[in-house]
C-alpha cells in the first residue's frame, strides 16, 4: 500500500510546486505585455532651422510656417558717428515651411544685392535610438539666388543667368546630449558670374556649427565657414558668427555678432569682408515666429 501510494504523492507535490509560480508575477503586470521597442528620434538639436546664417540640422515641423525677420546692423568699427553700426541695417525677410516631417522649403528677400532666394531642404537620415539606431542626422540643402540689382552697365549685353547663384550643402551632425549639438556642412557655392577671372565660379568650403545649451530656454551658437584657398579675392574673409538663441513660447530670438553682411548663403559665405580683428563685426538678430498651418492628425 505504502509502496503504491508514494508515486502519486510525488505527483501531487509536483503539481503544488508548480502552483505558486503561476502567481509570482502579479507585482509587475506590464511586463506581461513584453517590451515593445520604439524608435526614439533626436529632436530639438537646435532651437530653430538656422544656426545663425547656416542651415541647422533642424527642419521646420510639418505643417508649420516659420516667418523670419533678420537684421544685420552696420559694423562696430564705423564708430560713434554711425552709432557703432546701428544707423545702418541690411535685412532679410523669409518664410520657411515644413511640407513633411523631412522636407522643408523656403524663400526670402534680402536688401543686400536685392536678392531673392529659394531653397529646399531634405533630411535623409534622422538620428535615433531604439528599434532603428542611427548615430547621426544627414540633411541636404539646395538653394538658388537671384540678384535683382540694376545692371551696373546697362549698355553691354546682360544675361539673366548672370544674376543667378546656387548653393549645395550637406549637413552632417549629431545631438550628443541635451546640451551639445555639433554639425559639419560641406558646401559648394556656384556663381554664374564673378567680377574677375581670379575668382572661381565654384567655391568650396566646410562649415561647422555648434550649439551649447546653457539653460532650458537659452543656447549659445557659433558657426564658421572655412573656404578652401585660392578661390576668392584676398579681401574676402571666412564667415564667423557667434550668438545666443532665446526661446519664449512661440518666438525664437537669435542675437549674434558676425562679420558677414549678407544673410543669403552665397553672399554670407563668399562675399564677407568684415575682419573680426579690426572691428568688422555686425550686431544682428533673427526673429522666428511660427504659425501652424496644417494641424497634425491625432
Amino acid at each position: 500500500m505504502k509502496h503504491r501510494f508514494a508515486p502519486g504523492l510525488w505527483l501531487l507535490f509536483l503539481c503544488l510546486a508548480g502552483f505558486p509560480a503561476l502567481h509570482a508575477q502579479d507585482d509587475d503586470l506590464l511586463s506581461l505585455l513584453g517590451e515593445e521597442e520604439t524608435t526614439d528620434y533626436a529632436t530639438a538639436s537646435f532651437k530653430t532651422n538656422r544656426v545663425i546664417n547656416l542651415h541647422s540640422l533642424e527642419n521646420t515641423h510639418s505643417g508649420v510656417l516659420d516667418f523670419k525677420i533678420s537684421h544685420r546692423f552696420g559694423m562696430l568699427n564705423q564708430g560713434l558717428y554711425d552709432w557703432f553700426g546701428l544707423d545702418n541695417a541690411t535685412i532679410r525677410l523669409g518664410l520657411d515651411y515644413g511640407v513633411t516631417k523631412d522636407l522643408q522649403i523656403g524663400a526670402g528677400r534680402s536688401s543686400y544685392k536685392k536678392m531673392i532666394d529659394g531653397y529646399a531642404k531634405y533630411r535623409i537620415l534622422h538620428q535615433s535610438t531604439g528599434k532603428r539606431n542611427m548615430p547621426i542626422s544627414l540633411t541636404a540643402v539646395a538653394g538658388m539666388y537671384i540678384n535683382t540689382l540694376k545692371w551696373s552697365d546697362p549698355d553691354r549685353d546682360n544675361y539673366f543667368s548672370s544674376r543667378l547663384s546656387y548653393t549645395f550643402q550637406a549637413l552632417i551632425g549629431r545631438k550628443f546630449n541635451d546640451w551639445i549639438t555639433v554639425q559639419l556642412a560641406p558646401t559648394v557655392v556656384h556663381r554664374n558670374l564673378v567680377a574677375t577671372s581670379a575668382e572661381s565660379n565654384d567655391v568650396y568650403g566646410i562649415g561647422v556649427g555648434v550649439r551649447q545649451r546653457i539653460t532650458r530656454r537659452v543656447t549659445l551658437n557659433a558657426e564658421y565657414m572655412y573656404l578652401l584657398p585660392d578661390q576668392v579675392t584676398d579681401n574676402i574673409q571666412n564667415s564667423f558668427s557667434i550668438g545666443a538663441d532665446i526661446e519664449t513660447g512661440g518666438h525664437v530670438f537669435q542675437l549674434h555678432l558676425t562679420n558677414s553682411t549678407g544673410m543669403a548663403e552665397p553672399v554670407a559665405f563668399t562675399e564677407t569682408t568684415g575682419d573680426w580683428f579690426d572691428g568688422g563685426i555686425h550686431f544682428g538678430f533673427n526673429i522666428s515666429r511660427v504659425f501652424t498651418i496644417v494641424k497634425p492628425k491625432i
Binding site: A44, D178, I298
Partner: peptide, 20 residues
C-alpha cells in the same frame, strides 16, 4: 501629440524632459 509642434517640442524639452 499637440496641435502646435513647437508646443510639443517645449513640452518634451523644457517641461517633462522626456529625454531623461
Amino acid at each position: 501629440i499637440f496641435e502646435k509642434a513647437l508646443m510639443q517640442e517645449h513640452f518634451n524639452e523644457n517641461y517633462l524632459e522626456s529625454g531623461k
